[in-house]
Design a binder for these strands. Structure first.
Length: 478
RNA sequence: CGGGGUGUAGCGCAAUUGGUAGCGUACAUGGUUUGGGACCAUGGGGUUGCAGGUUCAAGUCCUGUCACUCCGACCA
């Protein structure tokens, strides 16, 4: 296949996937496009999903000693400019406020692309002694990054996230914190979102502007592209020096504090959709689904049916998130499709025939299988089923990731992989930026991370043939 | 900012050589239905993106303009 055809084929594949993705998020009523380009409206169903994510993460943050706070939306330009690498990284994509009412401001204010600078400014006032440390604060907020191209959830101009910002008295403690939060993200993705992730560290080229090191979790989507799903940065003293965050240590000497920051955004919702979704629509993991069980009455006009389902709803609601769809104007078939599109993991169908036999039909979204179950054991059955679905979805996703993980030992092999398919590629790397640039130019792929668990595939860099330093995962990315 | 594409009812689309703008779906009302997107009847909904031009006549031809969208560079 020559280059042009290759690109054409790839574009076609991408187009189909894009159409599917757009279709699903709009039809399932997660989001709508906003009147302002690049922004999205998160509709109640989508927001309920985000709320569940928030709830779980927030609990984990609090368990590890973090507290929530809130910092302003706008940041003075001079404040942003204090850390050089940081500004250089973010300046091209910040939105500016230039007027208050009709009056031009003396100093422009930027809408936060992230809050390091304003938070550091406050931290410098709050920290005097080693007794003030560690300082562990998280903020739930929105940020704005003026991206050239956008896509709902995956890359929007404004997005919701949480950003944690911590200060420590030693480098080791800060690094520990960075790794602790990285692990929380990884576990969250795997246990709650059923998304298997590769855990690792970013190459110098790919790391956060102003960080000493960036830890990341990378997930592979259905179409073979990688999604960075949560990052945790060790900032060293870069910011504390720029913002003068100092404390007196135990022997009375002044020191700059060691710092971390970490964030996870609404982007993971895009990850859920693209990891699990199928041609019927969304498939939500039970642990995070806004609705875990939907009850659909059959022949609701017949005596006893509506009473029975209402009773059932009440009973199941004590254990699960339940929705009863007793709308009269829609047929059962319509409702089946309606809730499948929205990814509800379990559906209970119940009609006159079932009531007579004291059972119901139960449908699982992940495998599309139906089963007849006695009403007496329904609750226990659903409880087990939800666990099973959660587990199964993770296994399926893991299998998919493994099937689309390849190995390359030469540049030729590497290019060949991206010409015929796409996914993760494992390869040895010399550590040189030139090799990173080369694969980006040739295949639009980048190093996603240097994994914690490296394998010795070879002793030479697959790209340039020099001695290798690391095994890396590469992929095309969102 | 570079390269494609599209603008007609809420959404998806049609309209032959230029000749009174239509279909599906959704919506409204009434009735019959209900185990995989129910059916019948009736009804409402339009300055064809905008501005100019050609013509007896423009959704259709010409010029300009705007918007949206996809692909690339930047990025969680």
């Amino acid at each position: 296949m020559d280059d042009k055809n290759f690109v054409k084929e790839l574009t076609k594949m991408d187009d189909n996937f894009t159409d599917w993705y757009t279709d699903v998020i709009l039809k399932s009523e997660l989001v709508d496009y906003a009147p302002v380009k690049g922004f999205m409206v998160i509709r109640p169903y989508g927001y309920a999903l985000w709320e569940n994510i928030q709830k779980v993460l927030d609990e984990k943050f609090k368990e590890t000693g973090h507290k929530n706070a809130y910092f302003p939306l706008l940041i003075p330009e001079s404040m942003l400019n204090k850390e050089k690498e940081h500004v250089a990284g973010f300046a091209p994509e910040v939105a500016w406020v230039t007027h208050g009412g009709d009056n031009k401001l003396q100093e422009r204010l930027c809408i936060r692309p992230t809050s390091e600078t304003i938070i550091c400014t406050m931290y410098s006032k709050w920290i005097k002694s080693h007794r003030d440390l560690p300082l562990l604060i998280n903020q739930w907020a929105n940020v704005v990054r003026w991206e050239k191209t956008t896509r709902p959830f995956l890359r929007t101009t404004e997005f919701l996230w949480q950003e944690g910002h911590t200060l420590h008295s030693t480098a080791n403690e800060a690094i520990e914190e960075t790794l602790r939060m990285h692990k929380i993200y990884a576990d969250f993705c795997e246990e709650y979102l059923a998304i298997p992730v590769i855990k690792g560290i970013k190459s110098e080229k790919e790391r956060f502007a102003g960080a000493v090191s960036t830890y990341t979790i990378e997930a592979l989507m259905h179409d073979g592209k990688a999604l960075q799903s949560g990052t945790s940065h060790y900032l060293g003293t870069h910011f504390s020096k720029a913002f003068d965050i100092k404390f007196q240590n135990k022997v009375g000497k002044e020191e700059h504090a060691y710092q971390t920051s970490w964030g996870m955004s609404t982007r993971v919702i895009g990850g859920i959709i693209m990891t699990h979704g199928d041609d019927r629509g969304l498939k939500l993991p039970p642990n995070i689904a806004p609705i875990q069980v939907v009850i659909v009455p059959i022949a609701g006009q017949k005596p006893g049916v509506l009473n029975k389902v209402a009773e059932l709803k009440k009973e199941l609601s004590s254990k699960f998130r339940v929705e009863l769809d007793d709308r009269e104007e829609y047929s059962p078939g319509y409702k089946f499709n309606h809730w499948e599109l929205r990814g509800v993991p379990v559906r209970v169908e119940i009609g006159p025939r079932d009531i007579e036999n004291n059972n119901c039909i139960i449908f699982r979204r992940d495998t599309l299988q139906k089963e007849t179950i006695s009403l007496d054991t329904l609750q226990e059955h659903i409880e087990k089923l939800l666990v099973d679905i959660q587990q199964n979805m993770f296994e399926m996703a893991k299998e998919n990731t493994e099937n689309y993980t390849f190995e390359a030992r030469s540049l030729e092999e590497y290019i060949n992989i991206f010409e015929t398919k796409q996914g993760f590629v494992k390869m040895m790397w010399c550590g040189d930026v030139a090799c990173e640039d080369k694969i980006k130019d040739l295949t639009a792929s980048t190093i996603r991370c240097i994994p914690f668990e490296e394998e010795q595939l070879d002793t030479k860099c697959a790209i340039c043939g020099k001695d290798s330093k690391h095994m890396v995962y590469t992929a095309r990315q969102y």
